[in-house]
Design a protein around this nucleic acid. Sequence first.
DNA 1: GAGCACTGC
Length: 695
Amino acid sequence: MPEEAGFPPAKRFRPGCGPPGGRVLMLLTAGSGSGGRRQQPALAQPAASPYPEAVERQRRSLPIFPARGQLLAQLRNLDSAVLIGETGSGKTTQLPQYLYEGGIGRQGVIAVTQPRRVAAISLATRVSDEKRTELGKLVGYTVRFDDVSSEDTRIKFLTDGMLLREAISDSLLRKYSCIILDEAHERTVHTDVLFGVVKAAQRRRKELRKLPLKVIVMSATMDVDLFSQYFNGASVLYLECRQHPIQVFYTKQPQQDYLHAALVSVFQIHQEAPSSQDILVFLTGQEEIEAVSKTCRDIAKHLPDGCPSMLVLPLYASLPYAQQLRVFQGAPKGCRKVIIATNIAETSITITGIKYVVDTGMVKAKKYNPDSGLEVLAVQRVSKTQAWQRAGRAGREDSGICYRLYTENEFEKFEKMTVPEIQRCNLASVLLQLLAMKVPNVLTFDFMSKPSPDHMQAAVAQLDLLGALERKDNQLTLTPIGRKMAAFPLEPKFAKTILLSPKFHCTEEILTIVSLLSVDSVLYNPPSRRDEVQAMRKKFLSSEGDHITLLNIYRTFKSLGGDKDWCRENFVNSRNMMLAAEVRAQLRDICLKMSMPMVSCRGDVESIRRCLAHSLFMSAAELQPDGTYTTTDSRQPVAIHPSSALFHCRPACVVYTELLHTSKCYMRDLCVVAAEWLYEAAPDYFRRKLRATRD
DNA sequence: GAGCACTGC
């Protein structure tokens, strides 16, 4: 059982973690101090407030408010700044308004980027409410499939991926006077690429004597040295924040079995704490979560009298939306909610009423192996920042308690920060986008955290195979095909598949398949109903592989007009299906803009398989005499994933869309092809491969 | 022979 380790830090921000001296450092304190207001420029505070009293009172009560004047005074004169403040400080909703009200950045649009769509939408809604304007006028948002902004929009919330896409058509980001990169500590690929793009735009605009671009990086963590250094020693502004104290307990001994330890902790808390206090448990994945949920429910049935009842709720991304929503509903009186979640509850979903966090210290995450060039999905230790993020989920409304199922000594050995995603993923898309922006010397692009040269080289090789690259004067540039590929919001290989499809007269079919592959799985697989699922799926299964199976499902779905009951009966995730339809429409639009012919091969499935063979030839595997498979590219042993339509078959030659390294190296989404099609697709490539095997 | 962290364009 976890035991108190005598470490109740009231705040995770300890003095002394700040940046080294030499830079402007402002301590903005919340609370009763009115220090900031004296310096407030006259312009910033209108004589008669346009806000109704309640909204105004609420805005004034935010921790950021007393610092308003100081903030504006500082930001007015800075090109770049880093603003540190916890969630709840009001920085994201207030800062853009302060800038606008203070007349900063009025010559253009103030952009605020977010890693997630829902955040961009809800923030824009909040801020436009506060400004008493119609959403899409003064305040708007732009996310994929949804643009609620206009000529009048001056404060625009967008996903970081969306701003990146805008940078392809205008790398100087001319419409923006100020770009606020929010949630920078999350270090998503998109934010990381934006850092470089925005920095370059800022410099270039200065050189060209155009409207200056103000860049503000907002982060929740104190580890800002990197941000500040990267933006030419930008000033760091600290926003002190109200935070509820969180008591942290460690186990006395390292735990062999974190699942068992989690169960013990949950029931220990359950027997001691008032039933109104909910528990959030962090585990690593769907299967584990479902298993632990079941055990919890079983144990809860046999508790002694007087013990409160327990409502156990699993939470992970592939759970149907309706079931996800249940975590927000209050439990009946006298009943405790126990939410068992993946890291989705670390950032994406915030649940109120959590008093206890049980942190196993484990997470399932992608790792990149530059030697093999493979992405591996593996259960591993969280980083310290991640552990603090999890603990913080206990103190959203009141003081909280976090049980860490590892010792303090173990914690000290955790990595300080999570490795930024850009160093853990395939860089082909990133490289293609940078090249589309005509970034000079892409291989030495100014990333905040540089990926290894091997890693970059692997992306170059992949784009090269797809025919996207050419070299001019020792510079990498895009071929006409490469430029077209960059227009699609897809992995480069899928963009290439679409571009090849007219040659095989199957553009309509390929659009469907690529759309289905680019959303989360439309196949819903509840582990407890495996047999039922298999029986229902049988009627769609194609012996030619998963792509054709998916096409069959989509066609049936469409012919029934997108029937939700049909989806439920057939274990099809209707949300993802609708999303795929939306993606398809978007991709089709892009094709039409390129004047691609919209052709269908109708019943001729072979053309589809030929098209896939021609675009995915570098992801192929051959059956060996011993019944196993080996990839043609790196002669790696691989297996057919159990979820595949081909799991029980042994075709001689397949292409796959994804390699997944778990207990084995699995191929996912397979299509049966003929070996000669592959040779036809890339004769030079296969000659090289053959030579390599002979040597 | 038996399994799928999380975002996003």
